[in-house]
Amino acid sequence: MNKRKARVVIISLYGSCLIACLAEVLAIFNGWGNLSGFRAVWTVVFFLLFWHWIYYESDSQEFDRPYNFGLSINTFWFIYVPWYFISTRGGKGVLTMLGFLLLFWLPFIVGLFR
């Protein structure tokens, strides 16, 4: 069941990235100016979806989650998230983490072409 939830969240994450990229392209062509408010919303949406994906995906990976798993992801995400990816996937975890970073930065990169 959690594997299905993880799949829905990752599809939502890809869809929201596509919407954010589309908004950046529309802003470029229509001359809308600064999209700082939209970028702030995109950051919050990305991290909420990313946190939910890790939570559901860790259950489907048969990963032995510690008692304070949710608190650790929220508080110490910069240490805990790379450790989670490397401990569950090994070398592929680094590529997965870099893929998520690219997914996060893609709308900002598209916005650079003004």
Results as ranks from 00 to 15, higher is better:
27 A>G: 14
58 S>L: 01
65 R>N: 07
102 L>K: 00
64 D>M: 05
71 L>T: 08
38 F>K: 04
5 K>Q: 15
6 A>E: 09
57 E>I: 00
75 T>L: 13
76 F>N: 14
30 N>I: 10
62 E>W: 03
111 G>T: 04
114 R>Q: 15
46 F>C: 01
9 V>I: 14
72 S>C: 04
30 N>H: 14
104 F>A: 01
32 W>N: 13
49 L>Q: 01
12 S>N: 11
107 P>S: 02
83 W>M: 15
13 L>R: 02
37 G>P: 04
86 I>L: 13
112 L>M: 15
2 N>F: 14
39 R>Y: 12
103 L>T: 04
31 G>R: 11
112 L>W: 14
33 G>I: 09
85 F>H: 07
63 F>C: 03
94 V>G: 07
82 P>A: 11
86 I>W: 08
16 S>T: 11
60 S>I: 01
111 G>P: 04
110 V>C: 03
23 A>M: 15
17 C>K: 00
47 F>L: 02
93 G>V: 05
11 I>E: 08
107 P>Y: 02
29 F>V: 13
17 C>S: 08
68 N>P: 00
15 G>A: 10
47 F>H: 04
95 L>C: 07
72 S>A: 10
52 H>T: 00
2 N>D: 15
72 S>G: 01
76 F>E: 08
79 I>P: 07
57 E>G: 00
52 H>N: 05
75 T>Q: 06
64 D>G: 01
100 F>C: 03
76 F>L: 14
60 S>Y: 07
58 S>Y: 01
110 V>F: 04
6 A>Y: 07
1 M>V: 13
89 R>A: 11
70 G>T: 08
30 N>G: 12
69 F>C: 06
74 N>S: 12
12 S>H: 06
25 V>E: 06
95 L>I: 12
65 R>D: 03
73 I>K: 03
70 G>V: 08
38 F>S: 10
5 K>P: 05
95 L>Q: 07
113 F>D: 05
43 T>A: 14
1 M>T: 11
41 V>I: 15
33 G>Q: 10
88 T>P: 05
39 R>C: 07
38 F>H: 06
21 C>T: 06
35 L>K: 10
13 L>M: 11
57 E>K: 04
53 W>F: 10
78 F>N: 08
82 P>W: 11
24 E>I: 04
96 T>I: 03
90 G>T: 09
22 L>W: 13
19 I>V: 15
65 R>H: 04
76 F>D: 09
114 R>N: 15
15 G>L: 10
66 P>N: 13
40 A>W: 09
85 F>T: 04
52 H>A: 11
61 Q>T: 00
63 F>W: 05
107 P>R: 02
35 L>M: 15
56 Y>L: 02
75 T>D: 02
108 F>C: 00
101 L>S: 08
69 F>H: 11
53 W>Y: 11
22 L>Q: 06
85 F>I: 04
15 G>D: 02
91 G>P: 05
2 N>V: 08
76 F>I: 12
59 D>W: 06
54 I>F: 01
40 A>Y: 10
97 M>Q: 07
51 W>Q: 00
54 I>V: 05
66 P>I: 08
55 Y>E: 06
112 L>I: 11
12 S>Y: 07
30 N>F: 15
78 F>D: 06
94 V>P: 07
89 R>Q: 14
70 G>M: 07
55 Y>S: 05
113 F>W: 12
69 F>G: 03
12 S>P: 05
64 D>Q: 09
28 I>Y: 10
47 F>R: 00
97 M>S: 05
81 V>I: 13
